[in-house]
Nucleic acid binder design. Sequence first.
DNA 1: ATTATATTTCGCCAATTGGCATATGTCAAT
DNA 2: ATTGACATATGCCAATTGGCGAAATATAAT
Lengths: 127, 127
Amino acid sequence: MDTNYKNHLGRIIKQQRISLPLTLQELAAKSNVSASHLGRIERGERFPSAHILQRIAKPLGFEEDELFTLAGYLSPQSPMVSEQSPAYSGDRLDPYVARILAQEPLEIQRAVIGILAILQSIAKSKS
Amino acid sequence: MDTNYKNHLGRIIKQQRISLPLTLQELAAKSNVSASHLGRIERGERFPSAHILQRIAKPLGFEEDELFTLAGYLSPQSPMVSEQSPAYSGDRLDPYVARILAQEPLEIQRAVIGILAILQSIAKSKS
DNA sequence: ATTATATTTCGCCAATTGGCATATGTCAAT
DNA sequence: ATTGACATATGCCAATTGGCGAAATATAAT
């Protein structure tokens, strides 16, 4: 069972791995980290050390500092998202979220927003 | 042991601590890392984990990513401050979608991605 | 010198990591 | 169904981390 709330990192890693797509063994081969360990990390039974994160970052398509930030090892100090569009200024869009969504075609991106709006209206009607 | 090999980091940390100046105990108090552990790190008997590095970075006057790089956890190439992430380069994230999502708290952003993943798996199972 | 006091190092130990080997699914084709 | 091939999960274990308290060493003051 998808246990705790606390396992953000494992879910992110797994999702990224699946989306490539890679099996645990393939990722293990590319990163020199045992598949069993990777599996435990994904389901939150182990917490990856910095060395492990460094090894799996590029094979997963992450920048090293990005993964470190997601793991909570690096504070999200990055001004990355505050690029061109001044519309971003106040609020922050999570780099990981942006990366996943950017892979989707435009209509999917918009559909996601639409679903979000529906869920919000539902939540609002209950309060 | 390798008393002079990878102990690069220990020397840097000790030198920085002395130059401030701080005692091991003072640094321990500021960083919530035991003085004994800090001492062993400085003389290369222990290798600091990412959590420890994160705790001692600011008290020592380092930037977090700076210390991580010195520790060999982060590759020297630091494009963080430059500008946009290369991860976005291939695919595009619609500015409108980005603006809407950026207004939501982080957990909502992540939840949206999670829902997207579920829908994708459902769609996949039908094809 | 001889205390007193601060600072560093050491001995021990619980907790965690991460690998290897093995077990348990999962799914296709025969 | 049975087999075989692959993917993921588990059992076990060596190695490391990091804290606490005590010993050792340095520093200061009388």
